[in-house]
Every structure is written in C-alpha cells, then in structure tokens.
Design a protein around this nucleic acid. Structure first.
Lengths: 188, 188
DNA sequence: TTTGAAAGTCAACAACTGTTGACAAAAAAC
DNA sequence: GTTTTTTGTCAACAGTTGTTGACTTTCAAA
C-alpha cells in the first residue's frame, strides 16, 4: 500500500496539477482523465463527481507549517512556504497559488475563502497575539499573496526571472513591516 | 450624444459589472443580456462576439492616474486608486480588482498580463527611475494587489469591515517600504 | 473451472455554451 | 405614404460540459 500508483491516485495527481494552475472551472473532467490516461467516467464513479475530485485534491494539504516554527523563524518559514511547490518531484503548483487561482470560482470560491480564513488568517492572528493581531495577519498575508500573485499569475519578468534569494529577501523585509502595525505595547 | 443609454451601452455596463467581478469565463452571454434586459444575440451582432464585448469593457479605462501625480503624492494616489470603484454611482468593480479576477482565464489571461506589464509595471518603473526601479515597481504592485486581493477576493473581515482610512494608512506604510529596496544611491 | 466482485470502457443523456440566419418592428429618409 | 435603414426578436445550430447506465475485461477466491 502507498507505493503503487493506482488509477485513482493518478486522477488525483492530474487533477491537482490542472485545477491548481488553471482553476477549477477552466478544467474539464475530460482534461483530467486525458492527462491521467484514464476514462472520464471514472471521476464520477470513484469520487462522486468533479467537485468531490477537487476536494480530494485538498485532502493531503497539511496545516501551515510556518505556524509551528519558532518565533524568530516564523517570517522566514512563512515566506519560504509561499514559493515551495507542493510536490517538488513533479514541480506541482504551490497550495497558496492554488488559493489565488480558485477564489474567483462561483462554485468553490466560498470553500477557498473559508480555507484562507480558518486555515491561515485566524491561526496566524492567534499565533501573533496582541490587540492588532488581526490587522497584522491580514497585512502579512497581503504581502505574501501579493508577491505570489506577481510571480505566478501576472508573471512579471522582474520577479519571475529574478534569483529567488533576492525575492525572498525583499518579501521578508516587507513582511517585517507588516508586523509593525498597531500595538507598540507588545509585551508578554 | 453620450447622454442616452442605448442598448449597446447597457450591454457594456452589464458586461463590465459581471465580467469584472465574476471573471470572464464564469459569465455567459445570456447572463449579460439578461442583466441588460436585451437579447443575447445582440452581443454578437453589435460587438462581434463575447471576447470583443469584454474588450469593449476595457476601452474607457484611462491610463493609471497615479503615474501623473507629483512625486510626493505618488504613493497616496497609487494606494487610493486601488480602492475607488470604476463608476462610483453604480459602485462598479475596481479596474485593478478586475485584473486579479481575470488573469487566470485561459482565453484572456495573456491580455491581462500584457495590460499589467505595459500599463502598470513598465511605466511605474520608468517613473520611479534608478537601478532597481523594476524590483521596486514589482514589490509596490505586490503590496497594492495583495491588499486588494485580501479585501475583494478573500474578503478577510479584518480588511473588508475595517475603516478605509486605517487600511489606507497601513497600505501606504507598506508601499513606502517597497520603494526602499536596492539603490541607496538615489540621486538626481 | 466456475463464481463473483472489482476495474475499466463505451455510447448516450440533458444541460449549457457562443453564434448565426431568418424574420418582425420601429424609425428615418425621401 | 412609401421606401430604406436601423433595431430588436426568435428558433435553431454545433460544440462542450458533467454524469449515468449498460457492457466488457481482469483477476482473485471457491
């Protein structure tokens, strides 16, 4: 178990690859089946439908690992997590980029919003603590998602082509600025 | 002329309202025609097709007004432009939010990328000047688009509900940080 | 070898998409 | 008042979508 690549698993991987980069409603069941070398009918048979296949795509996304980092490494880990692909071997899209690509969708948009709120914004705010934690979390996410948007979606050559260390440095600097808002009375 | 609301103009306004908020491929010609109180066939007849109607939607977007602001007001104008609706009377979506909502689209995505590059990033970099102008422009846009993304697409309550002055202040502060990258030798 | 469940294939369905051509109504030109 | 142009309506088209049911193949258990 776990090592064999069944047709079911092939479908999930093809679905992740396509859904996460092109967006849910821009990918057809036939596209996925074709990429997986399987029959379109198997999607409904195995998962119960297109929607359920997308949710299967989200199943093995763990909690945001940056949240469990030490206080000093929190920013570094957060910035890094936004540029690592989900499966480095297959160079699959980043889960955070996936969120940006699928919020707009009329069918799954609300699920994505919930995911961002309860999986990123809320725990981050709690982790930061303080009176203005919510604002700080929102602005930090704005910086992280903003840079990801420029790179992956708008594909600005200044960021797409640049060395990733430079981008990381600049992003980290902006992220630090985002955490300086509000309470100057940040005590223990 | 210009005052009467012909069916053609109604179609463009309905198309702008829907395309800009829901995204190009998530809106059908019948949706637009229904919202405009017109027949779906008129879209092809008047504009030549769905795609052309979308482009008609972009027609009367002027150049980025922040670029023509004085140096000291540049940031303030830039931040403000990202939160003003296109048509205040109709509370229509913001052109910058429209860009985020439509980059993903397989049909018009490339046009949107071109628009961001040649209409925002390039002129902004030229306006800023200096060796690292491209990086600064990219990071400034990342901040602006990031905050817009949090508000309009992810709809974080921390930003959606907050007083717009507070958001403006925080955004401006981050935008200033984005312009501090690279050349410490910023001379005239 | 026979049985029976699991895995996969194929054609077809209803719903929706953008677009077109034939037609009717209205307005303008003469 | 008649013609002509504009403006709008309607039904239908071909293509794509997700999904279903009937069927065949695979393959392990008896």
């Amino acid at each position: 178990m776990g090592k064999q690549t069944t047709t079911k698993k092939k479908l999930v991987e093809a679905a992740r690859d396509l859904f996460w980069t092109r967006g849910y409603s821009n990918v057809s069941v036939r596209d996925i089946a074709g990429a997986a070398g399987a029959d379109p009918a198997l999607v409904s048979r195995y998962f119960g439908g297109k929607r359920a296949l997308f949710e299967a795509t989200l199943a093995d996304i763990g909690p945001w690992d940056a949240l469990s980092a030490k206080r000093d490494d929190l920013l570094h880990a957060a910035v890094a997590s936004f540029s690592h692909p989900f499966d480095p071997q297959k160079d699959q899209a980043n889960p955070f980029t996936m969120l940006v690509t699928n919020v707009i969708d009329p069918e799954i948009g609300n699920d994505i919003r919930d995911l961002v709120q309860t999986g990123l914004a809320d725990p981050l705010a709690e982790r930061l603590g303080g009176a203005d934690a919510e604002d700080q979390a929102a602005m930090l996410l704005a910086v992280l998602f903003g840079v990801a948007l420029m790179r992956k979606n708008f594909q600005l050559p200044a960021l797409s082509g640049a060395a990733s260390e430079d981008i990381t440095a600049m992003t980290t600097c902006l992220a630090e600025a985002a955490l300086r808002f509000g309470d100057a009375s940040e005590t223990a």
